[in-house]
Amino acid sequence: MKTCLVVDDSRVIRKVARRILEDLGFEIAEASDGAEALAWCRSAMPQAILLDWNMPVMNGMDFLRHLRQEPGGDTPAVVFCSVEADIEKIQEALDAGASEYIMKPFDSDIIAMKFVEAGLA
């Protein structure tokens, strides 16, 4: 079973995303900020990461840049999931190595379609 790491400082968003992604067949791990997510990836690299942008301790963009420097860190498909909806911000995420980008609010169809786009479902 593929693993997806859900990284968001909102417990509600993590819970909602977990339910949707479990229905898509993923095993779910959770982290509430970028530093926690990076530690998780160093112990077990997931196949997919659903990543918030604005988080305490380490934000999503810093996490992604660090992740891509890690051994094996180029393999997970990273789907940003953020309230940031400016084209410049989205482009910045793509330039940093994001595979897809979800603008909040989202629903289950959007997550499913974005994961298909990212080659994950």
């Binding site: 989205i90 793509l94 989202f106 786009e117």
Partner: peptide, 8 residues
């Protein structure tokens, strides 16, 4: 725009 449209 989030249904089926690739982000790029």
């Amino acid at each position: 725009v989030q249904r089926g449209l690739p982000i790029r």
